[in-house]
């Protein structure tokens, strides 16, 4: 394999990392509060605002049912508005983030709902405000689950990032298609797949380990 190709692979790996990390970061920034609201906004729940919760749920479902490739193309005007351009690696972060938000929100909703309701009751009995309950009870108690959810989101985003090649997003997936498939270089395809596997493995085991460390329900020395 030529040094040229190796450089391409290294750059593509950096691009993938860059896109996934930023999309995960922005997605969490917006998805976390939305997830908390999805978990607590229902009728009779902590932040009861059922109408807003229902609408939010519908939007989340609609976004998640749109195939990613269609989402990427459909929101090009929005991408241009945010990133100043609709092509390139940075621009690709916009659709990736948009796809990540509802996904992350649903995962965080699930993690928050796993928290024993007795803890919320105990905090209410202490005279805690809803915001205090979220900050001091729900998020810390759900943290191991949230970390696992974000790990899953990161792995999914690595997959999604392969698709943003269609808008010049770059990254490993794009490299694999352009060189491995279109230029008949199966060895490039093989290396791309191996790098992706290693990446996903690394992310997953890092997430698992972090989640386990945060989970004080398990008896272990840490």
């Amino acid at each position: 394999m030529s040094p040229e190709i190796i450089r391409l692979i290294v750059n593509a790996t950096i691009d993938t990392f860059y896109m996934v990390a930023l999309a995960l970061g922005f997605g969490t920034l917006i998805g976390l509060p939305l997830g908390i609201f999805l978990a607590t906004g229902g009728k009779g729940e902590l932040l009861a605002f059922p109408a807003a919760k229902t609408i939010l749920g519908l939007i989340a479902n609609a976004t998640r049912s749109t195939p990613f490739i269609i989402l990427v193309v459909a929101i090009i005007p929005f991408t241009r508005l945010i990133a100043g351009t609709s092509i390139g690696t940075t621009a690709a972060i916009v659709p990736l983030t948009i796809a990540a938000i509802p996904f992350i929100a649903r995962l965080i909703e699930g993690a928050i709902r796993e928290v024993d309701y007795g803890l919320v009751e105990a905090a209410r009995a202490m005279g805690a405000t809803p915001l205090q309950i979220v900050r001091k009870v729900l998020i810390p108690e759900a943290l191991p689950g949230i970390v696992l959810g974000l790990t899953l989101a990161a792995v999914n985003l690595i997959g999604f990032s392969a698709i943003v090649g269609v808008v010049g997003g770059g990254g490993l997936g794009d490299l694999g298609i352009r060189y491995g498939y279109q230029r008949f270089m199966p060895e490039v395809m093989a290396v791309v797949v191996i790098v992706l596997i290693v990446l996903v493995q690394g992310v997953q085991s890092f997430g698992d380990r972090l989640s386990r460390r945060l989970n004080k329900r398990l008896r272990h020395s840490s």
Partner: peptide, 18 residues
């Protein structure tokens, strides 16, 4: 008022993260 009333529970309801 709630801060003047303590409560204990059957399943303790302690925060596992604390």
């Amino acid at each position: 008022t709630q801060r003047q009333i303590g409560m204990i529970f059957q399943h303790f309801n302690l925060l596992s993260s604390r």
